[in-house]
Design a protein around this nucleic acid. Structure first.
Length: 499
RNA sequence: GCCCCCAUCGUCUAGUGGCCUAGGACAUAGCCCUCUCAAGGCUAAAACCGGGGUUCGAGUCCCCGUGGGGGCACCA
């Protein structure tokens, strides 16, 4: 059931201050889903009013990450749109007019205090409220204007009502009422003339006709302020939605820089830009993220992006904070790998083989390998360790691995000879033609089929686990299979000579 | 410290007063299948934070505790 029948205009509005996290990915996803479901627009807006924290390249990584996930935006800094510009620093001239409007209507004031000094040394708990000490709060506008024209440094602050309360409504939590006495005269425009988030977000969301603001619960504490600003302008508020934040895997707090680094040491990461290289599918990441804080029903968990567009609903968002769980991502990745076309899988695993130094020049072979790997892979990254032997010129099985359970090296050698002869003598080589004869051979030798398969596995792959042996041999090819058996025989002979 | 939010298996969750003897999924263990490994199938263990109300009846509503989380910048 759609959350809203009206087309939603939603935005994802990150600030380019660092690498893009999973949490941002999920926020973007929810916005995207609502837009697509209702036939509305998904807008990308860059909130870069803090030049000090600006990180070059962050914007590019962000866009790459969203595109990798499949979240294409309809309006944004790179593609433009009817409500542009979509980068706040490019909108800077817009904000002054609105700030002045707030001042003239008595909802804001010029403040000439040196507030950093006022607060200096105060512990957060002891910090007094600015509005209780500010001498400029009730200054005549004419006087303030005179000081400004004489060049006095100033900021613009919201004139928070001293009494009363405000009620704002969050779509997943309901009404939230806060006493104005617990709020303060927040800065709206910095002394450099740029607006802070609180002002810019309200103005931009209003001008861009945003219908739903979906952002994480970190914004809940300043949510009442945003409500006040809307009221001061006399504007209608959008529908507010604050999905909960992600907690680190142990559930104790959100990811810190230290946690992030620790995670990377275990080969994991919460940066969107890292998932592809780690071997995850965007479909799986989307599926996984969507389900941290949202659910469809009591049993369905596998979703494609299209499924999510159809099934997503604001009503099923969960208000409580949720720990991220990488083993579940692995599981979803496996599910999505199994769902895909094996030729596509081949192209996806290729770079992982190449990264490990394998020469992948035979596309047909790669596709056969992909087919065999498809149900055995949870993470693409595992492909080389499971199937690297297919690309090796020569393999080196451990001598002991060629000796069957409860068999001597001599018996194993004899068995190997019989197997070699049989495989070489087959008119045609395939599972159909080789399976039964090999099993018969085992019986003839008084052995179990497992002995023969085990020997072949070790001789051909030099691994104790591998894909099913017939599929493996088919891909390797009879010629190379015989070569490797010969090598194994030589190893066994050598072993016999030593004894 | 102050403000705000949250509270069902280890984790993600279903549950909107009787359908709950609390359902699903991941992870864990066992079994089946089986040439190894997977995949798949079956099974097991595993939760309503506590106390008060309201009600014929509470996981579900209210209050208080407790616990967890977030925020308290001329950052977003």
């Amino acid at each position: 059931m759609p959350s809203s029948s009206q087309p939603a205009r939603v935005r994802f509005a990150p600030s380019p201050t660092g690498r893009t996290h999973l949490g941002s990915g999920r926020t973007a996803l929810y916005n995207y889903l609502l837009a697509r479901q209702t036939g509305g627009q998904f807008i990308l807006r860059i909130e870069d009013t803090d030049q000090k924290r600006y990180v070059p390249g962050a914007e590019e990584e962000l866009m790459n990450g969203l595109r990798w996930l499949g979240l294409e935006w309809d309006e944004g800094p790179d593609i433009g749109g009817p409500f542009g510009p979509y980068r706040q620093t490019e909108r800077r001239n817009l904000y002054a007019k609105y700030a002045r409007q707030l001042i003239e209507s008595g909802h804001a004031y010029y403040c000439f205090c040196d507030s950093p000094k006022i607060d200096e040394g105060d512990a957060p708990g002891e910090r007094h409220k600015h509005r209780d000490v500010c001498p400029d709060r009730d200054q005549l506008l004419a006087d303030a204007d005179a000081r400004i024209s004489s060049g006095d440094d100033h900021v613009i602050r919201f004139k928070m009502p001293i009494e009363g309360s405000i009620t704002v409504t969050d779509a997943i939590r309901g009404d939230i009422t806060v006493e104005n006495s617990t709020l303060d005269d927040y800065i709206l425009v910095k002394s450099n003339g740029l607006p802070v988030y609180h002002l810019a977000v309200v103005i931009d969301d209003h001008l861009m006709e945003i219908s739903h603001v979906i952002r994480t619960s970190e914004w809940l504490p300043t949510f009442p302020l945003h409500g006040h600003i809307y009221n001061a302008f006399g504007w209608d508020q959008p529908i507010w939605v604050h999905p909960s934040i992600f907690l680190k895997p142990d559930g104790k707090g959100k990811m810190s820089k230290r946690d992030t680094e620790a995670l990377q040491k275990e080969g994991k990461s919460i940066f969107l830009g890292d998932f592809e290289g780690m071997g995850y599918l965007p479909q799986a990441v989307v599926n996984w993220m969507a389900l941290i804080g949202w659910s469809y029903d009591d049993k369905t968990e596998f979703f494609t992006l299209d499924d999510l567009i159809e099934k997503f609903s604001l009503e099923k968002l969960n208000p409580s904070p949720a720990a991220i769980n990488f083993s579940k991502l692995d599981h979803f990745n496996g599910l999505h790998i199994r769902e895909m076309d094996s030729a596509d899988l081949a192209n996806l695993i290729r770079p992982f083989f190449e990264k490990d130094g394998y020469q992948v020049d035979d596309q047909e072979k790669l596709e056969q390998i992909a087919e065999v790997l498809q149900i055995r892979l949870a993470i693409l990254d595992e492909a080389p360790e499971k199937a690297g032997f297919f690309f090796k010129e020569a393999i080196h099985p451990e001598p002991e691995s060629l000796i069957g359970k409860k068999m001597t090296s001599g018996e194993s050698l004899a068995m190997a000879g019989c197997i070699r002869e049989l495989i070489a003598s087959l008119p045609d080589f395939s599972e159909e033609t080789a399976n039964q004869p090999l099993r018969d051979q085992a019986v003839e030798l008084g052995l179990k089929a497992g002995h023969i398969f085990g020997f072949l596995r070790n001789a051909i792959t030099a691994q104790k686990v591998s894909p099913p042996i017939f599929e493996t041999m088919t891909i390797v090819g009879r010629e190379k299979v015989l070569e490797r058996i010969d090598k194994a025989i030589a190893i066994l002979e050598n072993l016999g000579n030593e004894n």
